[in-house]
Design a protein around this nucleic acid. Structure first.
Lengths: 349, 349
DNA sequence: TTGAAAGCGCTACCAT
DNA sequence: ATGGTAGCGCTTTCAA
């Protein structure tokens, strides 16, 4: 019954191999890990016995011994109440994808963390470090990990600097959100827009806060009337409805800057339903990572927050922290405005 | 310097708290875990000391003690060479999302596994079980985990039954792919289609294999000429090109059944570019989990493989295995055909 | 060349 | 009511 050998509930341990091979635990360990100075014969013998018995080292025990787990956590905190809804947004999807890939190249695995749960249940996971996206003000998760001496990288510089302090904790990546928004607005203005409306999220994420503020400032500086709709959530339907309302309302805008993730093709369709044509009739810039923005007709200008690059940077900062390397405390990125036909100068100009 | 207290590199251990509080390790453990029969005063005292010192239990040590990790792995094996590209497909995204959510409700965390890497590096992770999606024939990852006595759930019944055997290993979820394909074809035929073309993937995933075979059989039974395009990868552009080629080619089809993930709005746009109109001119069914299929004009009929439900089932099977509960060896699902306007009987009928 | 023994940090048994 | 101690399974130092 070789089958019942293997699937029997009792796992074979190092000491079992040692006994079966008639050697000590040390010898087995050395033989299997290529350590020590064993004669090739002993080594081979031990290996054979180990294989015959179907021995696999216990990962947890090695980790305890090693003092690290090569596991990093990933958490997105914005929608704390409804865990993992955000996974369906292209931005978060790409973020976790890139983080995973980056972690793997550094020899780390990624653990998807719960955003809610019994108290500080996240501390029960054997993590070497954590990447926290969109931490909330005074985030308990961040606090817990830092207090436990587990390095944290977040995407909020201000928050990281407020909490951490010493060398190995509280590093960050971040964006100049206000600057990015102004760049978009300037671009739209240069393209001839006179009434730029903004659709923003109403969450606590600093991204939305800062973006909305920047928009208002920008308008104030020019004596323009701000026209902004704040959405409670990231749903597709509410966003499209908000757009249609704006376009069908009084004093419709001649440019739209969408700050929540929205499906580009469907957005375009909604705009058309309102009898507007992009870009002749309405300039359009979206904050989305959805790759279909490239393939619509016309292609849509986007403001990208570079999930791939930033996740990679975050993981690198984290790994540096974990492995005790000093280094930069954080990295500031610039959102990338990708100008495409939806906001280019009208072809007629 | 309360700050340097907390971030100092040396983590405070249980024994440190015990010493500081003038009690034994046992008392500290009991006090903190609410075990034992300590007087409230002792308990409180110990807790205060622990808090003052910033004590956090070492997760790895507890896990070693506990004999389990409450961590399950998630791996998708189809595109082993280019890890995590698939994360951008709606199907996989929803799969990992649902699996994560389900795992969390059972008190398990999810570890995203590398699909390639130095030999059996995945065994270094302290996992209680693994969910392997699209395992390849004779998958080494599956074999390694089973050999290590770590329960595996995969989405290939045949493979699971070939490998495992005994109670705690090799459970499965699966679909009757052939049946699903035939259901779609029957539906299209009933809706009046006479030339149904299929766009399929060319990967080793049994889904593609079985689907293509079912299509060919179905055609053969009716003496129809099969018209099938096999795509090497999941890219958006190649898929759209294949569709346009089909529609512009000789003997264009009057119905299209797309078996790879494609963006619904863009697909519709491509179809229109070919001068066809859905559904009057061309019936359309897609195998996609992209939620925008609902919002296009017309909405697109889809064949859904229920990533949410199946991931949940997989996690439940896995948790049962891990916790030593006997139970069903697997669960067979039926793909769900969601008929919408894109494949309904022409309105003119 | 090999092995005994000491831990990694924690929990749980069984004395006191 | 409290604490000593054994042990989870492994690696590693050090002595033989």
């Amino acid at each position: 019954m070789s089958q019942s050998d293997r699937s029997s509930a009792v796992r074979v341990r190092l000491v079992d191999v040692a006994r079966a091979a008639g050697v000590s635990k040390t010898t087995v360990s050395d033989a299997l890990n290529g350590a020590g100075r064993l004669p090739a014969a002993t080594r081979e013998h031990v290996r054979q016995v180990a294989r015959r018995l179907g021995y696999r080292p216990n990962a947890t025990a090695r980790l305890l011994r090693a003092g690290h787990t090569r596991l990093i956590g990933f958490a997105a905190r914005e929608y704390v109440e409804t865990p993992w809804v955000y996974a369906e947004l292209a931005y978060f999807g790409q973020l976790v994808t890139a983080a995973t890939r980056a972690a793997l190249t550094h020899g780390y695995g990624v653990v998807l963390l719960p955003t809610s749960g019994p108290d500080d249940c996240w501390l029960d996971m054997p993590l070497d470090g954590v990447f926290v996206v969109d931490p909330v003000e005074g985030d308990p998760m961040v606090g817990d990990f830092l207090a436990a001496g587990i390095p944290v990288v977040s995407d909020r510089r201000a928050l990281a600097e407020a909490t951490g302090g010493a060398g190995t904790v509280g590093r960050w990546i971040d964006f100049d959100h206000g600057g990015a928004v102004r760049r978009v607005l300037d671009h739209l203005e240069a393209a001839g827009a006179e009434r730029i409306a903004v659709v923003a999220g109403a969450t606590t994420a600093c991204f939305h806060q800062e973006s909305a503020a920047a928009y208002r400032d920008w308008c104030a500086e020019r004596g323009r009337e701000p026209s902004i709709v704040c959405l409670p959530g990231p749903g597709l339907q509410p966003t499209l409805e908000a757009v249609e309302e704006l376009l069908d309302g009084p004093a419709p805008p001649d440019a739209l800057f969408i700050l929540v993730e929205v499906n580009p093709p469907l957005l375009l369709e909604a705009v058309r339903r309102c009898g507007r044509s992009v870009p002749d009739d309405l300039l359009l810039v979206c904050t989305t990572e959805d790759p279909t923005a490239l393939h619509t007709d016309p292609p849509i200008s986007t403001l990208s927050f570079l999930p791939g690059e930033t996740a990679e940077a975050a993981v690198e900062l984290l790994v540096d922290s974990v492995e005790g390397r000093a280094g930069e405390p954080g990295r500031l990125f610039s959102a990338e405005l990708r100008i495409r036909a939806s906001s280019a100068f009208p072809a007629t100009a």
